[in-house]
Simulated assay, not measured.
Amino acid sequence: MRLNRLGSSELQVSELGLGCMSLRSDEKEATKIIHKALDKGVTLIDTADLYDFGKNEKLVGKALKGKREQCVLATKVGNRWDHVEEGWEWAPSKDYIKTAVKHSLQRLGTDYIDLYQLHGGTINDPIDEIIEAFEDLKAEGLIREYGISSIRPNVIKEYLKRSNIVSIMMQYSLLDRRPEEWLNMIQAHGVSVIARGPLAKGNLTDRIFTGKASEKGFLDYVPSEINDLMIKVKDISDGRMLSHLALRYPLHHPAVATTIPGASSVEQVDDNTEASNVDLSDEEISLFKQWTKQTYYDKHRD
């Protein structure tokens, strides 16, 4: 598994990571999935305090017991639920971030977090205060680096300008090429992209040709458009799995350090990580871009 430097940091992340939101609540199964990922060379393990209201972090922490040093452990903060009966609210204050990190550390069973990410963000947030919180946590040794998880252009621009973030997590796939507008700028600031949702909820896999295919489409693609696209991809696949080609696509741009497909089974981890043995040619990337839509974020702009 190839490793890439995350932004300007010393963190080295596998080009294929593991997004833990898809983990089931069964502790044994979750542990098997995470251990399989580590065995296959995955180093980036990504969770969030919001996932299953803290239970996901606990699963990850238990699975990493005795294996903590094998991974770059990432989690997220900003959504608060401990004071409401249902749901959660956006609460990115300095005090809350510095309190929440202690709870995440406890649930994860570790004394430091490699990558602490703001789980969202708006232009109306107290951005300087948020940055101060992350910088304080770095100085205290509770986190090694910090980043944001955001698709909002105006938010991204502010953090690139005002903070020392090393990463931006963005949904990015063949069916969602909106981040491409910003990849060169992000790279120019020495920041890396973590691509989430690279398989577009399974629409970019062989499942598209089965009875399990989604009837909802994806973003501005209707099911027939996705089917037509995947027929074209299959025609040039030369025996490669469609999911592997889809997983490789976000990695074609040097700004993208890693992509983090989820997995709900050991078999999915095996399948996904085999994409590390697949390459895309420049010609194939060009074809993929011809066959898909270059869309843009129309909200949250300056």
Rank of each mutant, 00 (worst) to 15 (best):
127 I>H: 07
96 Y>N: 02
98 K>T: 11
124 N>R: 09
95 D>E: 15
117 Q>A: 00
81 W>E: 07
83 H>F: 09
125 D>E: 06
117 Q>M: 03
93 S>T: 15
107 R>K: 08
123 I>N: 07
92 P>K: 09
88 W>S: 15
104 S>M: 05
99 T>W: 15
105 L>I: 05
93 S>F: 10
116 Y>H: 06
116 Y>C: 00
120 G>P: 06
107 R>A: 04
108 L>N: 09
118 L>K: 07
94 K>A: 01
108 L>R: 11
127 I>K: 05
125 D>F: 06
86 E>R: 14
118 L>H: 08
119 H>K: 09
111 D>I: 02
91 A>E: 14
102 K>M: 05
126 P>T: 05
118 L>A: 04
105 L>T: 05
82 D>C: 11
91 A>R: 14
125 D>H: 09
124 N>G: 07
110 T>R: 05
88 W>P: 04
104 S>K: 08
103 H>C: 04
110 T>D: 03
100 A>S: 14
87 G>S: 11
108 L>G: 03
121 G>T: 06
100 A>K: 12
111 D>T: 11
90 W>Y: 13
123 I>S: 06
111 D>S: 07
112 Y>C: 01
124 N>Q: 11
107 R>Y: 06
111 D>P: 00
122 T>D: 03
119 H>T: 10
121 G>K: 09
123 I>H: 12
126 P>I: 03
101 V>F: 11
97 I>S: 00
87 G>F: 13
89 E>T: 15
90 W>I: 12
116 Y>K: 06
102 K>L: 05
112 Y>F: 10
87 G>H: 13
95 D>L: 10
82 D>S: 14
123 I>K: 11
88 W>A: 15
95 D>T: 13
97 I>M: 03
117 Q>H: 02
88 W>M: 14
105 L>H: 08
88 W>T: 14
108 L>Y: 10
86 E>C: 08
117 Q>F: 02
90 W>S: 07
113 I>S: 06
92 P>S: 11
118 L>D: 00
101 V>L: 14
125 D>T: 11
116 Y>V: 01
90 W>R: 12
106 Q>C: 01
121 G>R: 08
83 H>S: 11
98 K>G: 02
90 W>K: 11
